[in-house]
């Protein structure tokens, strides 16, 4: 049951002020987004239409602490089909960023490792200018598992067979591909100073 006195009527405007959230109130609940969603097909309780309706009603805390915000695959099917141009993928992004701010303020706990993954990704990008799989994994797994040892174990489990497969094809690992340590070593760009400036000016929320 919704407790009307706990609703936040300004929540929709908060979302609409975030890039990507501008079209929220255009939604008329037709459910085209949900009917075509490949994630809903697998997890039937995942319902983007419902997340939008809850946002319009002002169920701020329920929306921001909802783990479902983080299982959108960003495949753009809903965005392409929405008759009201709500831009649902972008809307999810806007809500995710508000949720991250809310977690920083200590008001909610995000039940998904996705923010940790994005942070690790952006750290390698900021540091080297290009994606560095190994560096990303070495930051992400320990953070996700809550300790270095558990992180290494989880990483080994995911990468043991996969890594060997890549290694055999010369795509990853020592002695592979074009160099002795291809894929083990980051590729660095020269103008990393520019990236530093970019992250200082527009990446505040991503640090």
């Amino acid at each position: 049951m919704i407790k009307t006195w706990e609703l936040d009527p300004n929540f929709k405007y908060e979302i609409m002020n975030e890039p990507g959230g501008e079209h929220l109130t255009a939604c008329y609940q037709c459910s085209t987004c949900t009917l075509g969603c490949p994630v809903t097909e697998i997890i039937p309780s995942y319902n983007p239409r419902k997340i939008i309706q809850m946002s319009l009603l002002g169920m701020r805390k329920e929306v921001l602490s909802n783990a479902d915000l983080w299982i959108c695959a960003l495949c753009q099917t809903c965005t392409a089909r929405c008759p009201q141009d709500v831009m649902i993928c972008e809307l999810m992004g806007a809500m995710r960023r508000i949720a991250e701010e809310e977690e920083k303020a200590g008001d909610i706990k995000i039940e998904s490792p996705r923010p940790l993954f994005e942070k690790a990704f952006l750290h390698t990008l900021q540091k080297y200018g290009r994606l560095y799989d190994m560096g990303l994994a070495l930051e992400y797994y320990p953070n996700r598992e809550g300790s270095k040892i558990k992180g290494m174990k989880a990483m080994m489990k995911d990468y043991k067979d996969f890594g060997m497969r890549m290694f055999k094809k010369g795509k990853m690992g020592p002695l592979g591909g074009g160099g002795v340590f291809k894929g083990m070593r980051p590729e660095k760009i020269k103008e990393r100073e520019v990236l530093k400036k970019i992250f200082e000016k527009v990446g505040e929320k991503e640090k």
Partner: peptide
């Protein structure tokens, strides 16, 4: 020469994506 990563789908903030790709 010296291209940088586009941010993939992991740079959530549209402004960050735009800055990275503008370069």
């Amino acid at each position: 020469e010296d291209w940088n990563c586009c941010g993939a789908l992991e740079a959530g903030d549209p402004k960050l994506v735009i800055a990275l790709n503008a370069r």
